[in-house]
Design a binder for these strands. Structure first.
Lengths: 225, 225
DNA sequence: TGCATGTATCCTGTATACAATATCCAAAAT
DNA sequence: ATTTTGGATATTGTATACAGGATACATGCA
């Protein structure tokens, strides 16, 4: 069987597969604890098991799936404990990134400003989807401004799993957007102005705040601990 | 060709291979920028390319090798920039771990105390190797006390590359041991006593201090930026 | 009815074969 | 002499074949 995937797999196959599966997991099309068998995935995308195995290793690296030797792979379950772990790690790392981005003197910082209207509009329209995307775009820009590949790698490997919780919480409690949006805009402006200390502190505060608010939503569904 | 590896590959083959290659990289038997071809590695350990590929993915995850699509894999180069990146990330993460470990009320904390004499002796004997090992053992215990799998995963993925620099610096500047040892002992005692704030603060200070000292040694060999 | 044991099946892990691209070196052209 | 171009070679990426452990179900026994 040769590849003829449903869409355009222009990039390397394992990365493309991983990207598809990531989305399926993040947006809940693949449920927590769902079993993933290599042959099923391979058949579904019209490729052999080799690239599938590599893709699954990538998902494992980002904590989206769990593997048990010789037993298989499951979509990682969501839990309040896991959520707390992720956010306790995200706080200092995102703070570090924001501070480093603020300390970057390059001209690329201006791009953050150009993203602000987009964010503003999404907020006013109460368009969670659009805000979500704009926020992710801005975050990526901040990481690249931080010019710290190691930090980027760490944050990315947290970010995928974090997105699952964020998506879940946004859908159930759109009010979260009203807290995130203004804080995000303030922080981006401080980064552009080069205020290292404040960018870092405000980022840590904001994530901590969002953490607490999301926590209620997550706890309701995924238990007390 | 069936496996008959030089040693006992009791665990899963990819992990065992990765572990061997890790050591080879950390202790410099594989030089920075050295090319790793799948077939050579496979032939050397008497296995096929399949488990080798998986092992190399694991090394890639931990930042020990770099991969270019369809071009191959090289041992990651060492550089002052990379070193700075790693240590700027290590500070808050190790601080988080130390604080969380101090907040753990379980009885396992006592094990840290039992490691103290070992560390003390290594220090008095000026035995860098023994200190190295004791320190790693204590760190692992702290991570497990922190009871935060996500944090452990992040720290471990930094730790491997960090060890390359630590080994390099220890060999060239044994004086580093005289700074690390007393500070480490103090921190471990604070963790056992459950002093969360101080455990965290002192850990961050110590790593920051070591960072600066190691930096001179690294800079001498691996350039100014 | 409940539990243990054996067997059939499924699935992962490993090996090998094949395809395709990147690299290297030699020969030719400017 | 330097650059370019062609083909040979080496190495990665993918597909497929095979081996062995894990799971599930059925059968037998208490």
């Amino acid at each position: 069987m040769q590849y003829e995937g449903t869409g355009d797999l222009t990039q390397a196959i394992p990365e493309a597969l991983a990207s598809r599966l990531e989305d399926d997991i993040i947006f809940g099309r693949l449920e927590p604890r769902a079993r993933l068998t290599e042959e099923e995935v391979a058949a579904h995308y019209g490729v052999s098991r080799s690239p599938v195995r590599e893709a699954l290793r990538l998902l494992e690296r980002d904590g989206l799936v769990n593997r048990a030797a010789r037993r298989g792979i499951w979509v990682a379950p969501l839990s309040l404990k896991d959520f707390d772990e992720i956010y306790s790690c995200r706080i200092p790392l995102e703070g570090l990134a924001a501070g480093a981005a603020a300390g970057n003197d390059g001209p690329e910082k201006a791009q953050l400003l150009s993203l602000l209207p987009e964010l503003e509009r999404a907020f006013n329209d109460n368009d969670a989807q659009a805000f979500f995307q704009g926020d992710v775009k801005g975050s990526r820009l901040i990481y690249s401004l931080a010019a710290n590949q190691t930090l980027t790698r760490l944050i990315n490997s947290l970010g995928k799993q974090a997105l699952r919780y964020r998506y879940f919480a946004y859908v159930r409690e759109p009010r979260i957007l009203a807290i995130t949006a203004p804080g995000t805009q303030v922080i981006w402006r401080h980064i552009v102005q080069g205020d290292v200390a404040r960018s870092k502190a405000l980022t840590e505060e904001l994530i901590h705040h969002i953490w607490q608010i999301m926590r209620d939503v997550i706890a309701e569904r995924y238990g007390e601990a």
